[in-house]
Structure formats: structure tokens, C-alpha cells
Design a protein around this nucleic acid. Structure first.
Lengths: 116, 116
DNA sequence: TTTTTATGTTACCATATGGTTAATTAACCA
DNA sequence: TGGTTAATTAACCATATGGTAACATAAAAA
């Protein structure tokens, strides 16, 4: 697997359960059990998902007695945003959002790797 | 692996070579050899990367004699954009882009799975 | 027809992913 | 001490990923 930060972030996002966990964490810190509750999944499986998120820097682990609450760290998502944004002019072929297209042209941003 | 469209798109993006190929394709249609040129990679490896991109709907394969040119299809990236956008207010903790934060609040968008 | 070019398929390998059950650690409570 | 709760580790499994080398196919060029 690719171990550069952007690749780690993207593959962390490439699982519905992990995306759902991230979304849940926007409401605040949550324990592993709280995060696990909506899923039909054993504890170890949840632990593994959290490790993937942690390795990507998308969550931070804390301590509270025997609990290990998780906190959202959204910064890595900014690089995903910067990767995607230059493609905005390509995904709507009818160019009905012409303002955005022209704005992109004006600031000269082009999709490039490592990264926009 | 997860086979929902968004997961397929994100894992397709989770490799530097594939991101680089996509970026290159913004200049227009390219053959497999042209795409492969910058990489120290054998033919089969390139074919596999292209299949991952094709499965995610990020490229389209064409025919031109013995060539199979690739064309960028950026639409799936829009869903990545919609996934990421609601987190924008979280990744800059200093909230120095207050306008955007307030705009997001106004349109009531919250990060949720399946999707923003 | 033969050769070259462009690309794909097959078979194989090592490692990663995503899940399980069983056992273990860590901290609190009685 | 002993028991409960919270979470992780260990061991295992099936499948996917990312790469290789060797071979096969398709179309153009000589």
C-alpha cells in the first residue's frame, strides 16, 4: 500500500463504516463503544478501523479512565479538498456553472499530483 | 473491499500513480503507453491501475486501431467533493475563513454518510 | 507473410484489508 | 481480592492489492 499522507487519508475514507464514524465524530468526542454501536461489528473490527483513521491523522485518541475517546482531526481532509478542487471544471461537462469554471481558469489552478 | 461507488472512487484515488494518471488525463485522451511512460512499472501493473480507475468510473476506454486511449470522467469526483465539503469548517480550527463557516451553517449542511 | 507495436491475460508472489473468536490488559467498583 | 467494563492483542481466515515474468492477441507496417 501507499504510505504517503494523502494516500493514507484517501484509503481511510474508502470504507463506509469509517466515513460514518468520522461524520458521527463531528458532534464531539466519543468512546469506542459509542462509535461501534450503530454497526453490526465486533470490538476488534472497530479497533482496526480506528487505527486506520488514526494512522491517517483523521482522529486523535484520548484517555479517560478505561475509556479511549476519539476526537475528529479534519486537517488531512483539506488535502483531499485541494486534490479534488481543480477537477471541478471537468465533472460537469455542460459547464452550466460557468462562473466557477472561469474562476478556476483565472487563478490558474491545474490538477497536479502532490498536490494542487 | 467496499463496492459502493464512493468507496470505489476513494480507493482508486488512494495510489499516487493513479492520481498522477488522472492529472495527466486532464490534458486530453492518452494511450496506455503514454500514461505509463512516467512510471517505472511493467505493462500489467499499468493495466491493473487503469482497471481500478475504470471500475470507479474515473476513466473511459476507447478504441483506435490497436490503441485503447483513456479519457477522464470526472463526475465521481463530485461525490468526493460533496463528502469533504461539510468538514471544511473543522479543518481550520482558527476559523479564519469565517464567511465560509457561516455560509455552511446557513445552508444547514452537516457531514453525513451517503453523502453530504 | 513476417515483423513490430500496442495492449492484455495468465499465473504467481508478498503484503494489506476486513472480518472472526479467544484471551489479555487496564481501570474502575464492591 | 474479585468482578465488571472498556478496549486491545493474538491468531486465524478469505479476499484484495500491487507488483512481477511469460505468454497471447490485434492491428499496423514492411
Amino acid at each position: 500500500m501507499s504510505t504517503d499522507p494523502l494516500s493514507l487519508t484517501l484509503s481511510a475514507l474508502a470504507h463506509p463504516a469509517r466515513r460514518s464514524m468520522l461524520a458521527t465524530l463531528t458532534t464531539g468526542e466519543l468512546t469506542v463503544s459509542e462509535l461501534a454501536a450503530p454497526f453490526d461489528m465486533t470490538g476488534p473490527a472497530v479497533t482496526k478501523h480506528l487505527k486506520v483513521l488514526e494512522r491517517a491523522g483523521l482522529i486523535e485518541r484520548l484517555r479517560d479512565a478505561q475509556r479511549r475517546p476519539c476526537r475528529l482531526r479534519a486537517k488531512p481532509l483539506k488535502d483531499v479538498f485541494l486534490l479534488i478542487r481543480p477537477y471541478q471544471k471537468f465533472w460537469d461537462e455542460s459547464f452550466d456553472r460557468l462562473e466557477e469554471y472561469l474562476a478556476e481558469q483565472a487563478d490558474g489552478s491545474q490538477p497536479t499530483e502532490q498536490n494542487g
